[in-house]
Amino acid sequence: MNLTFDDGYQFGLGAFETIALVNNQPIWLEAHEARLRRTLDWLGITLPDDWQQQLQIYLNKNGDGMGVVKIMVSANNLSFTVRANPYENLPSRPGFVLAMSDIRRNESSPFVYHKTFNYGESILAKRQAAKAGIDEPIFCNSRGELTEGSVSNLFFIKNDRLYTPPIEAGLLPGIVRAYLRQRYEVVEKTIIPHEIGSFDECFITNSLMGIMPVRQFGTHEFPASAQTMTGTLYQNYLQDRLRPFPNYN
């Protein structure tokens, strides 16, 4: 792979998408492309006209047996990588453990709302949390409101209704988050940490894990089984991900 050291690889001015593969086919590629183009437009970067052909050639050569493809775009580079999907091989889905991060999301920064190469803060926070036995750290913004995880969006359930923090709280609008908002009635509302225990269930989402139940968030415990509403949402997602994305605009 030949890379040009442009502003993407020197200053982080590039965009990427991480997409699940099923039978060597990217899941909801249209939705990922729409988000990718939105970020590239903001950065002033043009996506090559033949990028999908280049992706298909790469997957035909390297994608067999892989569960993830990552697309990276900067001013002078278009590159792909593949790897296994760690969530697909979990023996069960017993639920993740979450904890609050000491890092605050800066809701005034435009980078918070785009999936760019400026991702170091999230990765370092996740590594630090893993050392403490935490599956996913959750960030508050400067106002003390819940936003998102290091690599996930955050959801709660109360009385069979879905709740999630609003984008303006300072979070990346995820693809599975968008899917749930199209498929179900989801209330976007400001949520603060002391409200966590008032909810019946909790789960997190991203394009690789899909929908992951949460069994503990700080000191609060939640049910995590196939019999929960979260379990039903996950089973529906497994079917829906093989169909066209409901609305990727």
Rank of each mutant, 00 (worst) to 15 (best):
D64Y: 06
N118Y: 01
L154T: 01
Q235G: 08
I191G: 03
T230L: 10
P110L: 12
L242Y: 06
A99S: 14
G210D: 04
I71C: 12
A15F: 00
V22Q: 11
E188K: 04
R177Y: 01
I192S: 12
I175Y: 01
G144Y: 01
F245E: 02
H114L: 13
H32N: 08
R93T: 10
N249G: 14
S198C: 11
Q10G: 00
G65E: 03
R37S: 12
L180E: 01
Q52N: 09
N23F: 03
L180K: 02
Q25L: 11
L154P: 02
S207C: 13
L208V: 12
E221R: 13
P213Q: 06
E221D: 10
F80P: 05
V214A: 12
R183T: 09
F5T: 00
F155A: 04
L90A: 14
M72I: 09
E107K: 07
T81N: 13
I204Q: 03
A99R: 08
Q128M: 05
R181L: 10
N60G: 15
K158T: 04
A130Q: 10
N24C: 10
V69Q: 06
G133M: 00
Q53V: 10
K189C: 11
R241V: 14
R143Y: 01
F245N: 08
F139H: 00
V22C: 11
T230G: 06
V68D: 04
M212E: 13
H194Q: 12
F96R: 07
T39V: 10
N249Y: 12
K126T: 00
V112K: 03
L124F: 13
E145C: 08
R183Q: 15
Q239A: 15
L43H: 08
V68T: 14
G95A: 08
F5R: 11
L13K: 02
M100N: 06
F80D: 07
G95N: 03
E185T: 10
Q52R: 15
G210V: 04
I157N: 09
P173G: 09
F156R: 03
R105D: 02
L146H: 01
G44R: 07
Y234C: 10
M212D: 02
R105C: 09
L242P: 06
Y237I: 11
S122N: 15
G14W: 00
M100D: 04
P246S: 13
F117G: 08
V176M: 07
K70M: 12
Y234K: 14
V176S: 06
I175E: 02
G14N: 01
G14V: 00
D6V: 04
M209G: 11
R37D: 05
V187Y: 07
Q56N: 13
S142Q: 06
M212K: 07
N2C: 04
S207L: 11
P193V: 07
F5L: 15
K61G: 05
W28K: 04
T190L: 12
